[in-house]
Nucleic acid binder design. Sequence first.
DNA 1: GCCGTTTTCGGCCCGACTGTTTTCAGTCG
Length: 581
Amino acid sequence: MEKKEIVDILEEMGTLLELQGANPFKSRAFHNASRALEGFTGDLPAAVQSGAIREVKGIGEGIAKVIGDLVTAGRSRDYEDARKGIPAGVLDMLRIQGLGPKRIRLLHQKLKITSIDALEKAAKDGRLAKLEGFGKKTEENILTNIEALRKRSDKSLFPVAEEAASRMLAALKDVKGILRTSVAGSLRRRKEVIGDVDLLVSATDASRQNIMKQFVSHPDVERVIGQGDTKSTVMLRQGISCDLRIVSDQEFPFALNYFTGSKEHNVEMRTRARRLGLSLNEYAFTAVEEKGKKKTKIPAVRSEEDLYKALGLAYVPPELREMMGEFEAAGEHRLPKLLEPGDLRGTLHCHTTYSDGLHTLEQMAGAAKDLGWEYLGIADHSKAAAYAGGLSADAVGKQVRAIDAFNEKADGFTVFKGTECDILTDGTLDWPEKVLSLFDYVVISVHSQFRMSEAEMTKRVVTALRHPRVTMLGHPTGRLLLSRDPYPIDMMQVIQVAAEYGKAIEINAHPMRLDLDWRLCKHAKESGVKIFINPDAHSMDGLRDTFYGVGIARKGWLTQADVVNAWSTADVRNYLKQSKK
DNA sequence: GCCGTTTTCGGCCCGACTGTTTTCAGTCG
């Protein structure tokens, strides 16, 4: 069994223990061990074999045995025991905001509720309010939050959908008869939230049946919803619906364009074709017969580039196909040269073991180097973020000295000294001037009191953003996608203030956030606000999340010049210096 | 269950908020 699966199982075991009302410290131990294992970077089977796994802090005798069983046998008795007596639906209820293990346990025991549906019914019948510790308000909140959960559960985050899609495509690649493959749909356009995964292949007619057979029998397929020669639909175990369409190779560019969308973009494509005397659909161009006019010659199309060229347009990258001005720009050949993943040279908002990160400063810097980067910025939490191991002022001093010492030895690699400083309720910062002056840069963000009104929250953030020591606003919309709603904030006003005061804004690329949607991104760019793509990384692996942010940056029309991560170390240093008055 | 001992037991991160209570438990970040 793979490390990632074991990390998930340990996490689940911790949760199951909570639901069983076990010693809270015991369940905590499982959660801790899960995190500890996540941070383990060595060869897991070897470490299990040699017993070295016990040296990982947080993994002791008992949990080492669970890990060992899972690595070698793929199953664990302890895990199976933990699952006994807890129906899957009970675990599911944890996804409802405001419901934790204690109350779910009570619901399970007193009302025999074992699913979200049963919970909803009980709430509607008014049976919850009668339960000890529950009341009318709680009952209403639960109903509201069930509704909210339902609304988002048919959507997946981009990183989850991308992972699922690439697993399916990888398996198809070597099937005989397949000529070209691609993802399509909103995933190809790199929207942050994906409805379902669309895959497209071109293939020989004779191979279609076999390709579909391979597709529906992929190990990730939970059930087959429909299976035909040109289109099949399956439900993946990740909870994502996935379509595969097969077309001829000649049709491929047309189908790819059509199924990539967006719908509005497609409408404009067809309208433009019409003006040239052509009809466009998902398979081909056809000439339109018009009285007194010569029939238009059908242009040869082998690729999407040809298709755009035939309409007198520059190739429009999928990310820009949202009817945000891409046709005008493509017609005048002034589409921007979008940021590429390879343009990144570093990132500035990462955590280390000084606060709630899993890896040390040296490990994080090493991982950044391995990605081919030139610099890394460390921004651990400030003291108010106690739950996230926020630093004391003393610890800041220690970390700053450690980074200075590291930089003296590091050859050609730079670690910048930063902080993720909490914005307190009144808009003041969590660090006094004396501490702020120690950093190369200051990221500010909201971690408390999310339920302010939009006006209050905006005032709070804008007040903090104006502070002379502040470099950039971190996770600006506070959105934890699909897990909770963003906090209310008037981003237009925030962007205006950022522009006025020369402050930057962060695209938080942490997969649970994917903050600052592309429309705001585009608006920020047009206002002259610089953007940082930050992974909010809590581990070495987490640094890779920066690349998810590139997708949002591209959708926001951002180029190398707009994104500070693409600048040289010297330019970044200058930028940080001049922004820090 | 894990850790770290002044090693074989005692402590394990915490502040804010909400809704329930009438002094606090549960949840969240």
